[in-house]
Nucleic acid binder design. Sequence first.
DNA 1: TCACATCCTGACTATCCAGTCATATTAAGT
DNA 2: ACTTAATATGACTGGATAGTCAGGATGTGA
Lengths: 226, 226
Amino acid sequence: MALDMSLSRRERERLARREAMLEAAALVFAERGFDNATLDEIAQRAEFGKGTLYNYFSSKDELLLAVIERTYTQFTGIIEESFAVERISTGPFEVLLRDFLFACLSLFSNQQHLFMLLMREGHRLFFSGNPEHATFFLNHRDRVMQLMCAALQHGIDCGTIRNIDTHAMSVLILSTIKECQLELIVPNDTAMSCSMGTFQSPEHAVDVLVPLLMNGIAAAPPPSSN
Amino acid sequence: MALDMSLSRRERERLARREAMLEAAALVFAERGFDNATLDEIAQRAEFGKGTLYNYFSSKDELLLAVIERTYTQFTGIIEESFAVERISTGPFEVLLRDFLFACLSLFSNQQHLFMLLMREGHRLFFSGNPEHATFFLNHRDRVMQLMCAALQHGIDCGTIRNIDTHAMSVLILSTIKECQLELIVPNDTAMSCSMGTFQSPEHAVDVLVPLLMNGIAAAPPPSSN
DNA sequence: TCACATCCTGACTATCCAGTCATATTAAGT
DNA sequence: ACTTAATATGACTGGATAGTCAGGATGTGA
């Protein structure tokens, strides 16, 4: 992102053009879905000719993978920041969890197209039957899981959470973020937001979810009642 | 499913052919994804000519919607059974939750293609930009949410769970099922099942998830320790 | 056996688009 | 100014497939 003076102008310009293409591709893939997105439209939005795309990416597939790679990097960045070692030892885990959920929901609320992209195309890759694509997806998912597990393990070690199955809890937390983000998008996307109560905002969602994740639903609430 | 004697043989045969087409379509949509599935292949698997499909469904889209409708009906059936009113008042909620999770994970483990279909194409419908499709998806999701909320509310009324936000908890439970089912599919689908520990079986997944959902992760575990 | 209706069929068409490549454009060096 | 290298361009091609339709099969009732 920040310009790197170790590169020549030539090289910097090339990178900038590549970025512009990725940006345009992310938008179009998110809006239309991979299969319905056309390289013509991506090229047009990036203000290049279609042929030029092929000077930077060897195929439509490769372009998609590059876009997803970029998005996952943003996401793992948030996990790393939220659960940085110096933060995790100090306060109660509940605060860390709040910050983390809020950061995730904010990121994707501000860049809904990135969320759509990950939802639509992530699963597509996994189920595509192409082992290379499935591996790509699983490796990234794996990285996210590992960061999450490490954060939880650290919490256990510090005694700020009880001794749980970190893997299962990571699945639970990450899946909740996904589904919750989906709800946050609904009202914007369709006039008809069905009868069900939806989360009003990232703040509201976090307020409601954190107690559930911390204390569960069992009849006897641990510290205070109701 | 069971033959209905109020229908003429003609009508029953027509319904049976329609079912065969839906069955074939579900398989092909799940394997290839909607966009890459061809009507030729669906027709071939159902052992009909392509033209015949159009005597039963007016377009590829309509065929997809019919397949998804059918799958959602199976799913809501499980929720209704698991949380039937006569069951919900009797035992501890934990048992109901175990049975429910197990029933879901079993259903989709035995019919993985249905799960793939819902994952790949459900979101596709929602994000497609086509309001009719988005509505279709949301209505079904809504129905699932309402059943789940009702079950939780009943648990609260009976005092078997504490007074939580039923909507948020429904999101949490349903999203966990999704992500967990994804993990259960991984080892079968790809030789390389990455470094992360995956759930071994529906039984194992339920054993691990239920305590997390019931008690959360907070440092002081409610009734018994560790 | 024939006439009529219902239903099936797959070759065909019209469309769409990923990827190519011959040509045009720009920049760099001399 | 001229040469050469690097890059951009978009018309074109080849392949794919959703949906159509004219004709064929099958069954039914007279």
